[in-house]
Amino acid sequence: MKIYGPNQPNFNPYKNQAQHQIDNAKEVTKKDQLEISSKAKEMLETDKKESKRASYVQQIKESIDSGAYTINHEKTAQKMIDFWSGKGGR
């Protein structure tokens, strides 16, 4: 058996630390990326539709408050009949 002194071959305690620093430097140079899924894009479109609907509801509220809103009773009754008979609205 051979016993080596303090300068053993293939033994460098700082080698792992140096390699770790090199690996970290490579990770730092990577650019951040953002990928938006098709589901997320679809949800963004839904938000746009909801903002249009909110605008429409606000217009109706304002017309009710001013007294300018009129109700078409026949059209309302027809829509209720269609809904409950299964012809539309579902």
Rank of each mutant, 00 (worst) to 15 (best):
W84A: 08
A18H: 10
I36A: 06
E35D: 14
K26D: 14
K41V: 01
K75D: 04
T70L: 10
V28N: 12
A40R: 07
D23I: 04
Q21K: 02
Q17Y: 15
K49M: 06
Y56T: 01
M80D: 04
Q33W: 03
E50G: 00
P13N: 04
R90I: 04
I64L: 14
I64C: 08
Q58M: 11
E27G: 07
A40L: 06
K52H: 07
S66N: 13
L44E: 14
K31A: 09
T70P: 01
R53C: 01
A18V: 06
I81H: 08
R90L: 12
A68M: 09
K41M: 06
S63D: 13
K61D: 12
N12D: 15
I36S: 02
P9Y: 05
D82Y: 04
G67D: 09
K41E: 08
D23P: 01
K87R: 13
R90Q: 10
P13V: 03
V28P: 00
N7D: 11
N7T: 01
E74Y: 11
Q17N: 12
M80E: 09
S51E: 08
D32H: 05
G67S: 06
R53V: 01
K2S: 09
E62C: 03
K26Y: 12
K2C: 06
A77Q: 13
E35Y: 15
I81F: 11
Q19K: 14
T70D: 09
Q21R: 06
Q21I: 00
Q58T: 08
D82P: 00
I60A: 11
I81V: 08
I36M: 04
W84I: 05
V57H: 03
K79P: 00
K31G: 05
A77Y: 11
G5E: 07
Q19P: 01
F83W: 13
A40Y: 03
N72T: 01
Q58R: 13
A25E: 14
Q58K: 15
A68Y: 05
E27N: 15
M80Y: 09
G86L: 06
G67Q: 05
E27W: 12
K48Y: 01
D47V: 08
I3M: 11
K48M: 02
G89M: 07
T70M: 10
K26A: 13
T46I: 15
A18Q: 14
N7C: 07
E45H: 07
Y69G: 00
D32A: 03
M1A: 09
L34Y: 09
P6F: 03
I22Q: 15
Y4L: 10
G67H: 05
S51L: 04
E35R: 12
Y14W: 13
D23M: 10
K15H: 06
M1N: 09
I3S: 11
K61T: 07
K39L: 14
E42M: 10
L34W: 03
D32V: 00
K15N: 02
N7L: 14
I81C: 04
D82S: 02
I64F: 11
F83C: 04
A77G: 02
I71P: 00
E50F: 02
E27R: 14
F83L: 13
D65V: 03
E50H: 05
E50Y: 05
N24Y: 08
K49E: 02
E35T: 10
Y56P: 00
R90G: 03
T46D: 12
N12H: 06
G5Q: 08
G89K: 07
I81Q: 08
S51Y: 00
